[in-house]
Simulated scan of single mutants.
Amino acid sequence: MPAPLAPALQAFLQHLRVERRLAPRTLAMYGDALGWLQQLADDEAVALGQAQAHHIRGWAARLRERGLGPRSIAIALAAWRGLYKHWGRERLVTHNPVDGIRPPKAPKPLPKALGVDDAVALAQQMPRTEHPALAARDHAIVELLYSSGLRVGELTGLDVAASTTAAGWVDAADATAHVLGKGRKRRSVPVGGPALQALAAWLALRGTLARPDEPALFVSNRGTRLSDSQVRTRLQSLARDAGLATGVHPHMLRHSFASHLLQSSGDLRAVQELLGHASITTTQVYTKLDFQHLAKAYDAAHPRARRK
């Protein structure tokens, strides 16, 4: 079993949790990375405050030898870099030994998106449950994820009404969802007609599940805010009911939203704004998905493209 994190590392995680408000999944990954850092330093009897760049390079190589992939190593280096940056602000170290150290390169897999027909079939699939409120809730969740390209955390963070404490809400009159995205950046995205209808049906039944003082838009059968993992489980069940061959997760609907919008409009900047990407290079990956769609159409239709 790994040794418990040293108090200084625990304090950094607490800083990320309280002040930076990182997502639980990110905190868990950073916690693992800090545990590896502590173990690697202990193995070589190096005080973390005295670590140098050559130590960090060696420890990253050790992680690779243990079978960690480039992405996991990149996350570890990001956690370590953040730790030393934080310690620098606290004047606990004089320099950041992780600066300038890059993780091994890895091929970037294309995001998985549903085809238009599959996405529409999933959005139209009514949940198989005897509880009408749960069915209305799940239907509204799928419609909103696909209609507005929300991250699952943005979806579960929505409140039923706008307020100064709400992370996000849906303005049905304006057909707009206001969400708090990565880096605590607010953005507004349109909500389509079918999603608004599904939300109205859910709101009409929400009171049969939600506790009187619960502000969340989407609640569980216990009446409290729905968690990210619960949304993933419900979406997988709906995908099976809809007869989809591939596993479906919330981010796949975000990818589908972006890919289908780009196929229809070709407006990369608009898609960037709707997704809340800080850099357009992040959004450009969907142009590759769009090209794959065009290439398939070409292979199927052009007489000189067909292969025997």
Rank of each mutant, 00 (worst) to 15 (best):
A3L: 08
A3P: 01
A8L: 13
V18M: 13
R21N: 10
L22M: 09
A23D: 04
R25K: 08
L27E: 06
Y30G: 12
G31K: 05
L34W: 07
L37A: 14
E44H: 15
G49N: 04
R57D: 10
G58W: 08
A60F: 04
R64H: 15
L68G: 12
I73G: 12
I73H: 12
A76K: 01
A78T: 14
A78Q: 10
W80S: 10
W80P: 05
R91A: 15
L92K: 09
V93Y: 02
T94D: 04
K112P: 06
K112Y: 12
A121H: 07
A123D: 01
Q124P: 01
Q125E: 09
A136I: 11
V142E: 00
Y146R: 01
S147F: 03
E154H: 10
V160A: 14
S163F: 07
T165A: 13
G168E: 03
D171C: 00
D174R: 00
G183Y: 02
R187F: 04
P190Y: 02
V191C: 03
Q197L: 11
Q197F: 08
A198D: 05
L205G: 01
L209D: 04
A210M: 04
P212H: 06
P215N: 07
L217V: 07
T224H: 08
T224V: 09
T224I: 09
Q236T: 10
L238E: 00
R240T: 11
G243Q: 03
A245G: 12
P250T: 05
P250Y: 05
M252I: 13
L253M: 06
A258F: 03
Q263P: 01
G266A: 13
R269Q: 10
V271W: 03
G276Q: 04
T281C: 02
Y286W: 10
A295T: 15
A300L: 04
A300I: 03
A301M: 02
R304M: 05
